[in-house]
Design a binder for these strands. Structure first.
Lengths: 215, 215
DNA sequence: TAGATTGTTAATCGATTAACAATC
DNA sequence: TAGATTGTTAATCGATTAACAATC
């Protein structure tokens, strides 16, 4: 009856789902077969009612007094997040940060496979970094276009990010995952996720400053 | 009159402040001397009233019709976020991701200096990575204790993260910046910031799935 | 002066939390 | 059965957005 699959989940819910998935995975490895919201909430420091609401978005239905079927729930989350089918991605900028993402095995398990890396540095082009071939930036647009790659990952310096994004958009990429500290201008239909390490640092930093002044 | 400095800013505000700082910096380099909320909001795709409220937390006061003094505002943000005085940090886990953070020059400008790195791999210990000395994990507690280091950065695999956090807390660290995909248990007085790349990926991924099913 | 912009108060919106009936 | 747990409706909370007087 519930057409939950169609209902778009709010961003806070989406951000919590991977945590649930990870916890369920460890329970599964420990041989458990069912799980309750209460236990999930306790392990992840969340409110049980909130967890229940989050899980409802995946369309899963639990049994009163028993809880949820562990594997069923885990798989529902996985499918809801689009982790079941692999989507290809390209990464631009093979600095330290780009390398770290290229080598991050977990992405593949989460439905994203980086198929090629791009850089302007001529000495890197043609080489392999973390098992992925590095191509010249000139080839970025054509690669996305001919292979119909939906995701572009930007790990360039801030100054280069907008140009790279423009090329990605123009070549037909559907989503951009931006790690460069820059606000990107993209058409409205493009999905844009921006990871701002400095934003996270600011929270920590300012809390530390408040604490220091209180002492 | 306004004792804004003491008022703790909400987390969304804290996360936006670095973006304002960055924009003001580029305006300053372009030779501007004043700035209005309207222009900040437009550049960062935000609401002008929201920007005004955010800036109020820094204690700065603008002039109607003119805007804010650019440098004054920039410096107020910097000081509000605790970027003016350097705080020392240690980093544990010199994998790809750890290296990327070790080499990230920007942190120093944002008030955080990584003074040492730690790893369990014997062949790395004693070497320098990105200019920082790598010490044996055994020495973590003592280093934090004797040098009174306030910040611990965790870039280990998930399985090692809790143990590292325990050592940091026990040695007197005040804040932990966790990049490992694990929920850490720490005493309430410890400031804990968790960067979850997979949470950001989940948002992108699920939007992509929604878009795909709509086509 | 007229008009742009600030600062503040009020209204809206959305997410979190609380309350509670249904049920295995 | 009794009690734990689900699913849902209502209440609370906090942040965003709108409205508007003050002012340079």
């Amino acid at each position: 009856m519930p057409h939950r699959n169609q209902m778009p989940a709010p961003q806070p819910t989406l951000r919590r789902l991977p945590g649930y998935f990870r916890f369920l995975q460890t329970l599964a490895e420990a041989g458990e077969t069912t799980v309750s919201c209460t236990s999930i909430a306790k392990a992840l420091h969340l409110d049980p009612t909130g967890v229940r609401k989050d899980l409802a978005f995946t369309g899963i239905i639990g049994k009163p007094r028993v809880g949820y079927s562990l594997l069923e729930l885990r798989d529902a989350i996985s499918s809801f997040l689009g982790w079941d089918d692999i989507r290809e991605a390209v990464l631009v900028g093979t600095g330290d940060f780009g390398r770290a993402l290229l080598g991050y095995e977990l992405f593949r398990e989460r439905g994203v496979e980086i198929v090629a890396a791009f850089d302007v540095a001529p000495d890197l082009v043609g080489q392999k970094v973390r098992g992925k071939e590095v191509l010249a930036l000139d080839a970025l647009g054509d690669t996305i276009r001919t292979r119909q790659i939906p995701i572009g990952i930007i790990t360039t310096p801030a100054a280069a990010a907008q140009g790279v994004a423009d090329t990605m958009v123009e070549a037909g990429a559907k989503a951009i995952w931006n790690f460069a500290p820059a606000v990107l201008e993209v058409p409205e239909h493009i999905i844009l996720e921006h990871v701002e390490l400095v934003a996270s640092l600011a929270v920590l930093s300012s809390k530390l400053a408040v604490r220091a002044s209180a002492e």
